[in-house]
Design a protein around this nucleic acid. Structure first.
Length: 879
DNA sequence: ACTCACACGC
DNA sequence: GACGTACGTGTGAGTA
């Protein structure tokens, strides 16, 4: 087997990672983006290269031997940001966990260490691979030394071999030094010859081979100016050469046989990953399929009693309760067992033992026995499957964690525990495996893991609640999200009835039309191909049919709808493709997709609302997503005909807020004109058009109203001038003008936008009216894009988030009102600004008034909230 | 098992 | 003036 040596330029990779990735930080405010990027790069290299030897080199200190030659070496360079410097010790820790040597040497740079070892390795018969982001290292390339440079991002590299270099750069590795000597390097403050850039330098080296030859034959250089510059800066060039030349004989102490790589210590690495919150990476380190037992053996042991029959002594008030399931879908996943922790101990109750126990059921349903859970909704729904209606849920760690920081991507017990510095717990993935390898471990392991999770839940309650109070979020948590959670759970459990035959017959008709269109497209294309593949479609349209290329994606031609629409009258194949796409979407996502998740016993669909996911406070919906059922195009809207009441003689009733976000904006910004418009019950888009274009009502054309509508849309969703230009098909400049004119027209809005960004910069986050919070670390980003995106988010989130708060409040109010009035009507779905209800026909008259009133009065703004309603035999008809 | 391009809603 | 530009979920293709 050949010996393979990997040499990594530690500083360079850390820098790259730092600037390539957003400034992630974990809960304790420690930045981890560079470490994270470094880790992904390292994992990839180790997987791909399987090195026998490895070393990471770092720059030692401020001064190097090069400074003796040239004092200003690396002068003028920006100071390393503290957010990065603080990560270097972590990178070293990481390497220790991976058991990879790292090395630095006073007065020398990482380059010199790498160069020296590369040459030594080469002589000893190694295949050497150098990883860096610094092109200077290309001078090391030889038959047995290749250099991988990071391209975009961090794991994306390009490997330079002598032949690749010749092809790509048209010069040899040996010429790299001379190239740099001529062109200099501003980032290292290397002068080179002024006025000579890469192009000229390459040209010179083509002609004269080496730097020495260039100057020996300087008379032959074409161009008077160039010749002069060379003659005047000969010394600079040779000094530059000295500076960029890597010292391949640096006095380093390490020997090659001391830097063998024998694989990492998975326990240490796992520990490190957990500490820093690198969950996604944990799955990539257990080469030899560590089972649940091994993972747990590494943790301090705990005492879990496996219960074989439930007795009263374990069912206390104030208990942490975990209903454990491996699958995501709690409507269908088997319950693997129950975790219970209270003052009397830590218990694991096997599913059948719990569910067959009358005592357990009675305890669960007793509202005076307070339960602390993780995910109240999931707990509620899964117990309902066993005919248990849980009561007395007093604490929900999932919701609390989400409210404290919604941008945290992992709101599971182990992740939250690690964020709060509680270590004795493994991630689900480590215990259960993931994907196809996921399996229920044997009972002892299961009980141990569930026991730990329940213990963590039990122990974290107080500090998490305290945090909510500190954030002034107690009311949001306790009066809004917690009650809502149970209502959502009930909605999910009730489900929505579906007319399966209707879906199936629509599917058949669609299939027929799809095949027909497909045939026609193939005929027009002159060949058959996979019409669902943009990769295959691109060449047909833009090469074979020679249609003009408007936009490319990184993998080929863009064939998205907005591009195809611009080509619509260029070729008759285009409208057919668009129709095929439209119908294909309906078929695969909505017909087939929905049929897949219909319960075949009850013909109902049970979505799951994710209450702890979006950054703004909105809900999301999965398996299936019932918040994106088509409505815009009639063809798709018909899908809604398949959503029907679950009982004979009932109707679907729908109520939606009219312009809730813009009303919220009027309120928050306290903009006189906007408030006036809503108080006068004006058509807001027409009003906006009047104000932006300075015209009277009857002068507003359709075109103007359409543009005003898009501007309003942009304000609500926080899109950029670019986004607005795209949606209106105008230039960015024009779009910006629209936005500016809008802000001139509504000075209150302008003031709000400025203030909210200002305030967010000061405190680091924005809030909604109900104190929902969103952190925006990118507000201080050095990257313009990031910063402006964060600024738009700062303006937009209070608007969208407050609207989300309001409809959530309305759901709670409505739920209670329906119960108080003894109505049978029940809420089925929420679609951001709309509630879908089913009700017996005789309740409709009552509902019209009651639902509207509750929704409009749920929250009092400086402008009225307006609710429209409709009903019919299907969701389609409730329009 | 993953990423990409695309498309649906608000 | 650059850069790549509301947020979600789900699908099929393509690659590893």
């Amino acid at each position: 087997m050949t010996k393979k040596l990997i040499l990594i330029d530690g500083n360079s990779i850390a820098y790259r990672a730092f600037f390539a990735l957003p400034l992630l930080n974990n809960d304790k405010g420690v930045h981890t983006n560079a470490v994270y990027g470094f880790t992904t790069m390292l994992l990839k290299i180790l997987e791909e290269e399987q090195p026998s030897h490895a070393l990471v080199a770092f720059d030692a200190g401020k001064t190097t031997f090069r400074h003796k030659t040239y004092e200003e070496y690396k002068g003028g360079r920006q100071k390393t940001p503290p957010e990065l410097s603080e990560q270097f010790p972590l990178v070293r820790e990481l390497l220790d966990a991976f058991q990879i040597s790292h090395y630095e040497l006073d007065q020398y740079e990482a380059d010199d260490i790498i160069g020296t070892l590369a040459r030594r390795g080469e002589q000893d018969g190694f295949e050497v691979k150098v990883i860096s982001g610094d092109r200077d290292l290309l001078q090391l390339v030889s038959d047995h030394v290749s250099v991988a440079l990071t391209k975009k991002g961090i794991t994306n590299v390009e490997t330079y071999t002598p032949s690749f270099m010749k092809e790509k750069m048209e010069i040899n590795p040996e010429q790299i030094i001379d190239l740099k000597a001529l062109m200099g390097d501003s980032s290292d403050n290397i002068p080179g010859v002024p006025g000579v850039g890469e192009k000229t330098a390459v040209k010179l080296l083509h002609q004269f081979e080496t730097l020495d030859q260039v100057f020996a034959n300087v008379e032959e250089v074409s161009g008077k100016k160039l010749k002069e510059k060379l003659q005047n800066h000969k010394d600079d060039a040779f000094m530059s050469k000295e500076l960029v030349t890597i010292d391949i004989q640096s006095p380093i102490a390490v020997k090659l046989d001391e830097i063998q790589y024998n694989g990492h210590d998975s326990t240490k690495v796992a520990h490190f990953f957990r500490d820093l919150g690198f969950h996604s990476l944990l799955g990539r380190i257990n080469e030899d399929e560590e089972g649940a037992e091994e993972v747990q053996d590494a943790l301090p042991s705990i005492d879990v009693t496996i219960v074989d029959s439930v007795d009263e002594t374990i069912l206390e008030d104030h208990s942490a309760l975990v209903v454990e399931m491996l699958g995501e879908n709690y409507h269908t996943s088997p319950v693997e067992g129950i975790g219970l922790v209270n003052d009397s101990g830590t218990y694991f109750i096997p599913t059948n033992v719990a569910m067959e126990s009358e005592l357990f059921k009675k305890w669960a349903q007793d509202k005076t026995k307070k339960k602390w859970v993780f995910d109240a909704k999931k707990t509620l729904v899964s117990l309902k499957r066993f005919d248990i209606d849980i009561e007395g849920i007093e604490f929900d760690l999932l919701i609390a964690s989400y409210l404290i920081n919604p941008s945290e991507n992992h709101h599971d017990i182990p992740s939250i525990s690690h964020r709060m510095d509680k270590k004795g717990i493994a991630y689900d993935e480590e215990v259960y495996g993931k994907g196809a390898k996921m399996k229920v471990p044997e009972q002892d392991s299961l009980a141990d893991h569930v026991g730990r999770k329940t213990t963590m839940l039990y122990e974290m309650k107080d500090s998490v609640e305290e945090r909510l109070r500190e954030n002034s979020q107690w009311e949001l948590y306790h009066e809004l999200e917690m009650p809502l959670s149970l209502i959502l759970g009930e909605m999910e459990h009730v489900g929505v009835a579906v007319d399966v035959e209707q879906l199936e017959s629509m599917g058949k008709e669609l299939q027929r039309r799809l095949s027909e269109i497909e045939e026609e497209v193939y005929k027009l294309a002159g060949e058959t191909f996979n019409l669902n593949s943009p990769k295959q479609l691109g060449p047909i349209l833009f090469e074979k049919l020679e249609l003009p290329v408007i936009k490319k994606t990184k993998t080929g031609y863009s064939t998205s709808a907005d591009i195809l629409e611009q080509l619509e009258d260029k070729h008759e194949i285009i409208p057919k493709i668009l129709l095929y796409r439209q119908l294909g979407k309906l078929q695969s996502t909505y017909i087939e997709g929905l049929l897949k998740v219909v319960d075949d016993q009850t013909h109902k669909i049970h979505t799951r609302f994710n209450q702890a996911l979006t950054q703004t406070g909105r809900l999301s919906s999965t398996e299936p997503n019932l918040q994106n059922i088509p409505i815009r195009l009639e063809e798709g809207r018909k899908i809604r005909q398949a959503f029907i009441p679950s009982e004979e003689g009932w109707k679907i009733f729908s109520a939606d807020y009219s312009q809730i976000e813009l009303r919220v904006l009027a309120h928050i910004a306290n903009d006189e004109k906007l408030i006036q418009a809503f108080n006068d019950n004006e058509d807001i888009h027409t009003k906006t058009a009047m104000d932006v274009f300075h015209v009277s009502k009857d002068e507003v054309t359709d075109q103007m109203r359409r543009q005003a509508k898009a501007v309003n849309f942009g304000i609500v969703y926080g899109i950029s001038d670019y986004g607005l230009s795209q949606s209106l098909g105008i230039t960015r400049k024009e779009a910006k003008k629209f936005i500016d004119r809008y802000l001139e027209s509504y000075p209150g809005v302008k003031e709000y936008m400025d203030d909210v960004v200002q305030e967010a910069k000061q405190q680091g986050y924005v809030t909604t009216l109900m104190m929902r919070r969103r952190y925006l670390p990118d507000l201080t980003s050095r990257n313009f894009n990031r910063r402006s995106a964060a600024e738009r988010t700062a303006m937009n989130t209070p608007i969208q988030g407050t609207a989300a708060d309001i409809i959530k409040q309305a759901m709670i109010d409505l739920y209670h009102k329906l119960a108080d009035e003894r109505l049978e009507a029940r809420i089925l779905l929420q679609v951001h600004d709309e509630l879908i209800i089913e009700a017996p026909e005789h309740e409709l008259e009552t509902l019209k008034e009651l639902v509207t009133k509750v929704m409009e009065e749920t929250f009092s703004l400086h402008v009225p909230l307006k609710v429209d309603h409709a009903y019919g035999d299907t969701w389609y008809d409730a329009k």
